[in-house]
Simulated scan of single mutants.
Amino acid sequence: MGAQFSQFFPPRPSFQLDKLPSQKGKVFLITGGASGIGFKIAETLYAKGGRVYIAGRSQQNGQEAIEAIQRAVPQTEGTLDFLHLVLDDLTSIKDTVAAFQDKESRLDVLFNNAGVSQPPLGSVSKQGIELQLATNCLGPFLLTKLLHPMLAAAVPDAAAGTVRVVWTSSQVAELSSPPEGMIMAELTTPPKDNVRNYVNSKLGNWFLSVEMARRYGSNVGIVSVAQNPGAANTNLLRNAKWMKILSWPLLHSAEMAAHTVLYAGFSNDLGLDHNGAYVIPWGRIHQDVAPNLVTAMTLKEDGGSGLAKDFWDFCDEKTRDYC
């Protein structure tokens, strides 16, 4: 329980945002970058001279975020741009990637930051899939898959281990997942329990991170990291007002949570040797992952249950027609 307690009440961050070196010449894409944690990530990387793309469904919100960041950071060599992205509509993601490819030839870090938590029960995506699974897992999976060539293109002239994909999980993945880690049948027949569906999606993000590290780490050189950003007061809980009220004493600012995400994206503690690591607030490698989840993320031939691979294969099958 000590590892869980320290995620509720983390030590002070050792990775300071203002100490991040210049990011001039590097390209970043942040889903959900118009508000909350994503906004703070975009602001920080823009201030450091990066080419920053804020991806989201609302052009207006994206433009307002860009203007707010530009007012807050008046002098920088960075650039800001908006990409239209609808994660719960798989038919639209290929167009988003095509628009990005028209502007850039490489991608240094992809922050899969956007997500939804506990929408009205029965909410589904444009393809009729439970909304949290679609928005938090299937959309980011397809986006990452289509952006893989641009991530790979950044590897040759980047320092080893600095081209990364950062997936957003949650502490609930450890606290509330079933003993076996995930019940795969719940993906096709979702329980009438929004919290359980959210847990499945956040554990799914962790699974995708581990599997991507296994598949594209040593042979391609891309680092894949999952992270629990910490309990933050953001729009994520807009559909779970009672949860937000009850958890209010534990909620921190988006800026504090950004320490976790930027540690995952840039810390030298991480790299190819720690590919597939899990980062906890406010920027630490999780050293005490629950044994049942370790088993779920280990391949069958290595003594595990292979659930992470099964989940990757599920996402691959569900998105195959939209590549």
Rank of each mutant, 00 (worst) to 15 (best):
Y278I: 04
I41E: 06
Q70H: 04
D102S: 12
S169F: 09
Y53T: 07
P229I: 01
E186W: 14
G304Q: 01
N194T: 03
Y322T: 00
L87H: 05
Q16C: 09
I222F: 04
F39S: 07
E67S: 15
A226K: 03
P21C: 06
V116I: 15
L251G: 08
H148E: 09
A173P: 10
L307F: 05
V155F: 10
W167M: 02
F28R: 10
T76Y: 12
V27D: 10
V109K: 07
P190L: 03
M256Q: 12
A213I: 02
S123T: 15
R196H: 07
L142V: 11
Q70K: 14
L250D: 01
F9Q: 04
Y216N: 01
A98H: 11
S253I: 01
L87C: 06
A154Q: 07
L175W: 15
R238Q: 15
E104Y: 14
G128L: 09
G304P: 09
L138C: 12
M1C: 11
G25R: 11
L85S: 05
R57M: 00
Y216S: 02
V163T: 13
G38F: 11
L175K: 13
E174G: 14
E67G: 07
Q59D: 07
R164N: 07
V97G: 05
L307S: 04
D273T: 14
D302S: 11
S218H: 05
S224W: 08
T168R: 08
R51F: 04
G33P: 06
H252R: 15
T91Q: 13
L87R: 02
A99S: 13
G265W: 05
V166S: 02
D193Q: 03
G306S: 03
Q287L: 11
N235Y: 04
Q7I: 12
T188D: 08
V165K: 00
A99Q: 14
K145C: 00
S125D: 08
S35W: 11
W312Y: 12
F207Y: 12
E301D: 15
Q59F: 13
N61I: 04
K202N: 03
G56C: 01
R51V: 03
K145A: 01
F111W: 09
M184H: 07
D89T: 02
D81N: 14
F100I: 00
L208S: 02
R284K: 15
G50P: 08
G217V: 06
H252F: 05
G78N: 05
G139T: 03
G33H: 01
G56I: 00
T91N: 11
C137E: 04
R106H: 12
E317C: 10
